[in-house]
């Protein structure tokens, strides 16, 4: 990635300013992993996620959810949020760990409408339930499917 120096003037917050604000607001529950040009990595607790997203949207100007993806780490599930900001020109990656025996997390679809179908897809593929989601149903696979294909214990039949 090429570092661009000229665009910092019209940005609302720089990466470091965002990290400082998040650290000040959430002293525990959110840890910042790494900062790169236009990229921030963070980890959040399951309980702190919705509050963090509210703060990001309301105060820091993150207007856009790029993606919500599930990951099966065998002993735990992860939900990875990529939230980007047009005014700050930066992409924030939030990783949330979820235990496999209770795959539930707060939905962020009430904040950003764009997250709606991403969460439905994650439910369809991993079986992770999103609380307060307007419509938690399968999206790609037929309604009567009884498996969650992207889990690691689901093997492809010709392999």
């Amino acid at each position: 990635m090429v570092e661009e120096s000229g665009d910092s003037s019209d940005r609302k917050f720089s990466e470091n300013a965002i990290v400082d604000l998040v650290r000040g607001k959430f002293p525990e529950g959110v840890t910042i992993g790494g900062i790169g040009p236009r990229r921030i990595n963070a980890r959040a607790d399951r309980a702190a996620l919705y509050k963090l997203c509210e703060f990001l949207k309301g105060d820091l100007g993150f207007e856009h959810v790029s993606s919500v993806s599930g990951v099966d780490r065998v002993d735990l599930f992860q939900v990875v949020y990529h939230i980007s900001s047009y005014s700050n020109r930066c992409l924030l990656e939030i990783t949330v760990d979820i235990p496999t025996d209770d795959p539930e997390i707060d939905s962020i679809a009430p904040l950003w409408g764009g997250a709606d179908w991403h969460e439905r897809e994650t439910y369809d593929m991993f079986g992770i339930k999103f609380r307060n989601h307007p419509r938690m149903e399968r999206i790609f696979l037929p309604e009567d499917t009884h498996y969650f294909p992207f889990r690691k214990d689901f093997k492809l039949w010709r392999r």
Binding site: L141, P149, F154, L156, W157, R158, R159
Partner: peptide, 9 residues
């Protein structure tokens, strides 16, 4: 089935 010969769907 082409390149998706081992797909579940």
């Amino acid at each position: 089935g082409g390149p998706w010969y081992d797909s579940y769907n």
